[in-house]
Amino acid sequence: MDILYGKFQKSVFRKYWMFYLMMLPGIAILVVNNYIPMFGILIAFKNINYTDGILGSPWTGLRNFEYLFKTKDAWIITRNTLLYNGSFIVLNLIVPLAFALMLNEMRSRFLAKLHQTIMFLPYFLSMVVVSYLAFAFMSDEHGFLNTTLLPMLGLDEVKWYFTKEVWPYVLPLVNTWKWVGYYTVIYMAAIIGIDEEYYEAATIDGASKWKQMTRITIPLITPVIVIMTLLQIGRIFNADFGLFFQVPRESGVLFPVTNVIDTYVYRTFLTVGDIGLSSAAGLLQSVVGFTLVFLSNWIVRRINKDNALF
């Protein structure tokens, strides 16, 4: 802090010295846990040698990035990552929002609470367990779908882990199932926070439920929607590794629709074992996410300054 001291006007520091003191533990942890490791991005441009250390290893320019662009897989993994994450952002907005709005209309608070609690359950399960569950439903031999449900509907068996066409639906379904409870809580909270007087006034004016929703509820919770969406946009290049690695069970036939940047990088790392390559991918993902967040925030700002995150 003594370095910073000289930079600030003395009067400000004298007046708010307690604030700096209060923030000190937080700043210290952020510096240690987040800012110092950021210098690790150097690894992305180095051919790492452990005995020479990070600073002492030779530079390699952009060589560590090459493998991400080299093959026609580059296009596939980028496309998959963006399309899936795009669909997740939309689904994680629309579905939980709709759920929250509907729960809010439930007369029985007890039931609303009960549903909300149950919806939260999948959030607790790790992706490994989720992959077991998915397998229990989709396995060729013992799967619930093939042994029970499809015959009941008079349909033919499907070899799920060999059928590319179904996975662009399966993965968003699994992802939404896992996260919907979490996001519903957040939107629900925002909706309940809205002042009751708005609705009373609307009812007196004879506004329909739909009107109340589109004119009162949604506009008032827009800041929350913006925060949640921007945060997800910041990670649009980072795929949920567990989802894409565990759930499809490494079925090669499905790669054209399940291979994403994170799984691609992981498989490369398994063979090549070079942390430079994974660092390069991580850096690229951060930079793209960073740029997109600023871009979308800028757009939000242009539309409505109050809704922007910063």
Partner: peptide, 24 residues
């Protein structure tokens, strides 16, 4: 508090950018 904004950004930035596992 005049430095509220920079310190807000200081914490927000950590959500977007990380240095990777090994340096950490």
């Amino acid at each position: 508090f005049p430095h509220a904004k920079p310190f807000t950004f200081f914490v927000f930035f950590t959500m977007l950018f990380g240095g990777g596992l090994v340096p950490w």
